[in-house]
């Protein structure tokens, strides 16, 4: 082959590689635009429709019958109670289990097994967790209750807190443990009074992330906490929650209900986004101060 022909082949090859590269890079950039596009669109719809549905009655009136005007007060109160109770149940167990993984089990076989199955629980479909609580609690008691809803949500809180606690305790330098133990402080006291204090921002972040996850969670509440049109603070009875009310109202044909659903959706979205921003900020600050 002559030099000229060889050069022509090389040029063609080079040209093709550059085309492939160009197409690939454009594709990657467009993909990112694609992702951001949906984010912007969904947030825009939620804000735009939600804000026009906002008014003072939202926080002062109960969920109305169709055709009437009203607010979401009982749903907000119900959500707050159900979620708080879920955190109170799930977080302590999660912190304890995370402590076991980081401080005692470490890389043992049992520890690795717990980590493995905890990660599966973390991504398990929430509706199945609701079904589990329904079968174990609701069916045995005979009626829906806010408490069973909290139990279902606690199952979502648990793996999130286990994982963050485990990871945050692992970040605490071993020298701290050794310093405490060498002074004759028993291990439980080292853990509770030294390690928890050092890992506190991380553990709090885990709890906040868990709260963010459960405050918009709908599926497991459908057949545990169910719904209640009226004000209720009795955790042994059905209770309204914002996501379930949104679901019910959005699926209806009533315009007033639909607009309330959008207002609720806006509040839930704002709350969840604020929580995730706050937990990010805590983590970031913590990282800087540790360096």
């Amino acid at each position: 082959m002559s030099d000229v022909a060889r050069q022509a082949v090389a040029d063609r090859l080079y040209f093709r590689r550059r085309i492939v590269n160009g197409v690939g890079l454009v594709f990657a950039t467009l993909s990112t635009g694609f992702g951001l596009f949906w984010l912007a669109w969904i947030l825009w719809t939620t804000f735009y429709t939600g804000i026009s549905a906002l008014n003072g009655k939202l926080f002062t009136m109960m969920t109305p019958p169709p055709g009437d005007e009203g607010g979401l007060l009982n749903a907000f109160a119900g959500s707050a109670m159900i979620c708080l109770l879920a955190i109170l149940i799930g977080a302590p167990i999660g912190i304890a289990a995370g402590t076991y993984l980081a401080e005692y089990a470490k890389k043992s076989r049992l520890g690795e097994a717990i980590r493995f199955f905890n990660d599966i629980l973390l991504s398990a479909p929430s509706i199945v967790l609701g079904m589990f609580v329904y079968t174990v609690v609701v069916k045995q008691v005979g009626h829906y209750s806010a408490f069973s809803g909290s139990l279902a949500l606690a199952l979502i809180v648990l793996p999130v807190v286990v994982r963050t606690t485990d990871e945050m305790l692992k970040l605490v330098p071993g020298a701290m443990r050794e310093a405490g133990l060498s002074l004759g402080v028993p291990q439980w006291k080292v853990t509770v009074q030294i390690l928890y204090r050092a890992a506190l921002p991380g553990i709090v972040t885990g709890v906040l992330l868990a709260l963010a996850r459960i405050s918009g969670e709908t599926a497991p509440l459908l057949f545990t906490a169910f719904d209640n049109q009226f004000w209720s603070t009795n955790v042994a009875q059905p209770m309204a929650s914002v996501p379930v009310v949104i679901y019910k109202f959005a699926m209806s044909a009533d315009a007033g209900w639909k607009s309330l659903a959008w207002a609720g959706a806006l509040i839930v979205t704002l709350f969840v986004l604020a929580l995730s921003l706050i937990s990010r900020a805590i983590l970031l600050r913590n990282k800087v101060s540790n360096d």
């Binding site: 939620t46 405050s215 679901y247 959005a250 659903a261 839930v268 979205t269």
Partner: peptide, 8 residues
């Protein structure tokens, strides 16, 4: 973003 928002 909560999944119910995606749904609506």
């Amino acid at each position: 973003i909560p999944s119910i928002i995606y749904g609506m």
